[in-house]
């Protein structure tokens, strides 16, 4: 989607700092992603991508939505850390909304905003290398690492579609990055060494 330099706005929605420090770390000399044209910007208006951390606390929610809306389309969201990906250990407490997907639901219901392309980078915190890999994935430089192969006895188009739908029932409508699913005939797998 973005062929040139990726400008990133760091949006902390109530994270513990672990992921935020690792984000800063990739701009430090060891990794130094500025040489790839990736840059942290101060204003959401300047950004192409959001480096999203934290489980979205209740107090933060209205402010996060404001910042989210301020980033111009098209945008990419890098959901960094377990909290951003799924809410982390506090996914269902009274004070937490529970990660980007829950945020998207609210955005969709209340503001009719379609979820942007999202890259999930799990880890508590993810290593800087993983964050860079995520950014590279956004650019299409590398392939997605998480893949899923499913074997069925009789393979036809309908079963394939059904399985994909069941596995990612809710997510199929959105533009999330999903694990690549390949449905294969179980006969084939037997032939493989």
């Amino acid at each position: 989607m973005f062929e040139k330099s990726l400008w990133v706005f760091h949006l902390n929605s109530g994270s513990c700092n672990g992921c935020d420090i690792e984000i800063l770390n990739i701009f430090a000399p060891k990794q130094d992603v500025e040489r790839f044209g990736i840059k942290l910007v101060g204003s959401p208006r300047h950004a192409d991508a959001i480096a999203f951390t934290g489980p979205v606390t209740r107090e933060c929610l209205p402010k996060v939505i404001e910042a989210f809306k301020a980033v111009p389309e098209p945008k990419i969201v890098l959901a960094i850390g377990s909290c951003a990906c799924g809410g982390g250990i506090w996914y269902d407490t009274y004070a937490v909304i529970g990660g980007v997907k829950e945020l998207y639901k609210i955005l969709k219901e209340e503001y009719n905003i379609e979820p942007p392309t999202t890259i999930f980078i799990p880890g508590c915190p993810p290593k800087p290398e993983a964050i860079i890999y995520g950014a590279a994935l956004a650019r299409g430089v590398v392939e997605q690492k998480q893949k899923r192969e499913i074997y069925v006895e009789e393979l036809d188009e309908k079963t394939e579609r059904d399985i994909v739908e069941i596995l990612f029932g809710e997510s199929t409508g959105t533009r999330h990055f999903l694990p690549q699913i390949t449905v294969k005939n179980s006969e084939e797998s037997k032939n493989e060494p």
Partner: peptide, 11 residues
């Protein structure tokens, strides 16, 4: 402040 209340004690 206190935007980062995550309900830790109760949890």
């Amino acid at each position: 402040g206190f935007h980062v209340h995550r309900g830790l004690e109760k949890l």
